[in-house]
Amino acid sequence: MSTGGVTSVVFGALILAFLLAFVRLARGPSLPDRVVALDLMATLAVGFIATYAVATGQALYVDLALVLALVAFLGTVAFAHYIEKGGRSWRRI
């Protein structure tokens, strides 16, 4: 199988994974469940960018994956801090 065929399969699998993560994001049932789904989507996006770099041959996209990996972690930690210290206000979300 050519590289193009392999990257197409990988893109398909990643898009399917995105849709599944979105199902969990929409259904919840609690805010931490949605944060797990968002964290997974950020991780999937890092993998998607890496695959895109391979598919297009543009090595510059690997830098983008590095930046996204750095930022996604901060988002998860901020949400966790909000859930732990933010009282009960998030229970309605």
């Binding site: 990643l14 399917l16 994974a17 599944l20 991780t43 695959t51």
Partner: peptide
């Protein structure tokens, strides 16, 4: 890709 798909399946 297989691992990431399995992760998404598990999350659902």
């Amino acid at each position: 890709a297989a691992f990431m798909l399995i992760a998404a399946l598990g999350v659902v």
